[in-house]
Design a protein around this nucleic acid. Structure first.
Lengths: 197, 197
DNA sequence: ACCGTAGCACTAACGGTTACGGTTTTGGAA
DNA sequence: TTCCAAAACCGTAACCGTTAGTGCTACGGT
């Protein structure tokens, strides 16, 4: 997986990491809004343009590792049955980001409309990727609409659980609803059909 | 509903409308990105600051009437049974914005990431309002989480149907799933309980 | 050893947004 | 009617995220 990177790639990765770390440190220190891109660039000792060559926007500095999120979701699709596999994955993610160690970061995110909005559209991207994975996955065939719908529901579950008083319970409750929705999406077999593939 | 407005309020509303109309005309004419706020202000013959005193952002100029959307959703909650009432409302909304006359506007929206993102966070606001309305509405009691979940599902249905090849069919299909999810959220009666209130 | 190019720097600008201070308009009270 | 406080609006200048343009340097493949 991690091939021997050349010096160039290593330097690039180091620069990227240095920028991300510096940014996060400044954000947590002084507040997201109080830190400008020029501050981050200066503190990380790079040019402003370099920051934007590594990160598409200021908000992306905060969600540096969002690729992981998407990959964990899409990989969970290969496990069966589908919905319980997704439930477990969502539960793990929610646990991860409601952990005490992550509290300051999420407090910052909740306090910034820009960051919240960015996270939303991130989730939508993930939902699209998940829908594609489900449609291509090993499970029984469903319509495109059903796949996209269930994918949205799953990322909704994450978003809602993150804000709930009892995240674990919220995941369970929402996934009961998702399971029912997924069953209802079986093609044409009404409510009691046996799943003959 | 529409109380007799004084001159001041009428003038204010007129200014707001003039700005919105001018903006939409310019946007459709030259493209959203090619029109600056300063252009809109000049064409509407107002100051830039006046534009922002009426609209919170450039994107808000495009979604001028989003209050309607929210109110239609929350009002539909008083009708029973809940899910079919919401389905009808969503269907009407989808029809409205997939009509030929609205095509240019939605084409513009689809072509601008900023507008798409703005619409997403708008929908989330609507979902929250809907969740509150459902929780306070006349239907049987459900958990807060169940209400928020269903509200998200409903606005998801709108978003997905708007992009589907056959919007009406997509609404129906998604609402079959939503209905099942809502049934599954009944408190503690497992899968076959009779709904004794 | 050499060349193509990836990575980075620097400056200047663009465009949405806001702060600020001043002017006009309006509704209502004296 | 007269007058006042608030509301609406104006104009300018600035802030900040983001991008274009240009060039330099160090690295990797040949």
């Amino acid at each position: 997986m991690t091939e021997p990177m050349g010096r160039r790639e290593r330097k690039k990765a180091a620069t990227r990491q240095k920028i991300a770390d510096t940014a996060m440190r400044l954000f947590l220190d002084r507040g997201y809004d109080a830190v400008g891109i020029r501050d981050v660039a200066a503190e990380a000792d790079v040019a402003v343009t370099t920051v934007f060559s590594h990160f598409a926007s200021k908000e992306a500095l905060v969600f540096e590792r969002d690729d992981d999120f998407e990959q964990r979701l899409t990989r969970a699709v290969t496990d069966q049955p589908l919905i319980p596999a997704l439930r477990q994955e969502i539960r793990a993610m929610v646990r991860h980001c409601t952990a005490d160690s992550a509290a300051p970061v999420w407090h910052m995110i909740d306090g910034s409309p820009a960051l919240r909005q960015y996270e939303e559209s991130m989730r939508l991207r993930h939902a699209e990727a998940l829908a594609a994975a489900i449609a291509a996955g090993p499970g029984p065939d469903r319509t495109t609409t059903a796949c996209r719908t269930i994918a949205r529901f799953v990322v909704d579950a994450y978003a809602l659980a993150r804000e709930a008083a009892d995240p674990d319970a919220a995941v369970d409750e929402t996934f009961l609803m998702i399971e029912a929705a997924w069953e209802a999406a079986r093609p044409e077999r009404a409510t009691l059909g046996s799943g003959a593939a």
